[in-house]
């Protein structure tokens, strides 16, 4: 359970921090995993997302709406889950849970046996907080230049890749610690 990893994906590729690599890999393999894998899975998420949008009869919006101050609703945010076979590109089979918000997608790469309900909850909590603290829909470049903010969030909500069973009160306490004001 400890190796769930988050990826934030824009059409240009992965933006997010990627955490631990598998043991028993060579140095080069670790490097390849750390760099190529997010790219690869981001393409899969992008295509799954487009297919889902198409099946719902919605055009996938190529433009990022400029609504930096509007609270983002996750009510109807499309999301899904799919599996990637071993070696393609992760050495072991993985399950990818994804959520698309505006023109971005957030994806959790999980081990096959993990609690997917919890992964979906975790993703739904991470997304608005990342949007808020990285100003992902704003005009700036915080998403690229504030790895500390992203790490701070991940360290609370997904510490070392561990998904947590947090009820709303725990979450509020966590937001207080981070100084976040998430609309509820």
């Amino acid at each position: 359970m400890g190796s769930t990893r988050l990826e934030i994906l824009g059409p240009a590729g992965p933006l997010g921090p990627c955490s631990p690599a598998e043991v028993s890999l060579s140095l080069d393999e670790v490097r390849v995993l750390n760099t190529s894998v997010p790219l690869f899975s981001s393409r899969q998420v992008a295509s799954q997302c487009q297919l889902l949008q198409a099946s719902l009869g919605r055009p996938s919006s190529p433009q990022l709406p400029q609504l930096p101050d509007e609270p983002v609703s996750l009510q109807d945010a499309p999301g899904g889950v799919f599996q990637m076979p071993p070696g393609d590109p992760f050495p072991e089979r993985v399950t990818v849970v994804w959520l698309s918000v505006l023109a971005l997608a957030f994806a959790l790469v999980c081990e096959p046996q993990e609690n997917l309900s919890l992964a979906e909850i975790t993703l739904r909590r991470l997304a608005p907080r990342l949007l808020l603290s990285l100003r992902l829909v704003g005009p700036g470049a915080d998403v690229l230049l504030r790895p500390d903010a992203a790490d701070g969030l991940l360290d609370r909500l997904l510490p070392h890749g561990q998904m947590l069973f947090l009820n709303e009160r725990f979450l509020q306490a966590m937001d207080r610690e981070l100084g976040l004001k998430v609309s509820r």
Partner: peptide
């Protein structure tokens, strides 16, 4: 504790 969780999942 999360560090430990990561350790056991890695090795």
């Amino acid at each position: 504790l999360p560090v430990l969780a990561n350790v056991i999942s890695l090795s």
